[in-house]
Amino acid sequence: MRYAFFPGCSMEATAWDFGKSARALFKALDIRLEEIPGWVCCGSTPAHSSSEGLALALPALNLQKAGAMGAPVMTACAACYSRLRAANHRIQNDPESRKRAEQLTEKPYDGGVAVHHILDVLVNHVGRDVISSRIKRPLRGLRIACYYGCLLSRPPGIVAYDDPEHPSCMDGLLELAGAETVQWPFKTECCGASLAITNNDVVNRLVHRILSMAALAGANCVAVACPLCQMNLDLRQDDARKAHGDFPTLPVLYVTQLLGIALGLSEKDVGLEALTVGADKLLAGAAR
């Protein structure tokens, strides 16, 4: 298996631990990730909120480059995944959009490059058998609330490879790794995303709601697969507590960090030192 890897801007900055753990995990699984040379920003929310053209053309530029590599694209960032898939969908289904993307990038593109999220690849391409056969350090004592957020789940038809209202693929993976997962109702609630920059009061309320529910459901940590979800839920716990009342402190880890540890990688290999709420105590129980 070989993938054209689209890291996205966050993976080299605010979510470097996600990038590092994703790469380390795939190395441990003997799967080749080749970074798309000269990849550029997907445009994210600012592009689709302000320019239809940029929202099509920035993803298209990346997909054209991946097309030249002859491998399907894999990305770990939920927002990049959503933007690449949304642009592909429009280019495939609307001839006007295709023409527009080609005019803006000055290169042909038919929307034909497949784009997968890392969870999709782990569950549906790598598969449960391979993953469970490689578990070296079961995640004993972990009761995980799997938090999928918005952009892995919605809109269905463009992004979803799982149930859009009640996804379970991350739960399945972490159960293979020896953890317990909790049933809870806020798996796909929004964390407020980039409102953290402009309206952090909204995000503090949402973080409080999501983490309180995770704790009420019996979780002792949260697993995520999106850089913005991780940053909001990890970095803003004190603010959420101050604004809306107490709830237990919960480590918020990337699914790739948790799986990496279960596959025998070290804390450093998966960048655990980058967490604001540390996970040392949590992982102390996991068998070496």
Binding site: E12, S51, L54, L58, L61, L104
Partner: peptide, 21 residues
Amino acid sequence: PNRSRSAGEVRKVFRNARKEE
């Protein structure tokens, strides 16, 4: 900045998008 080596192509896309608008 973690500059892309395709930054020139991105500028071209922005220029074209502005012309289109």
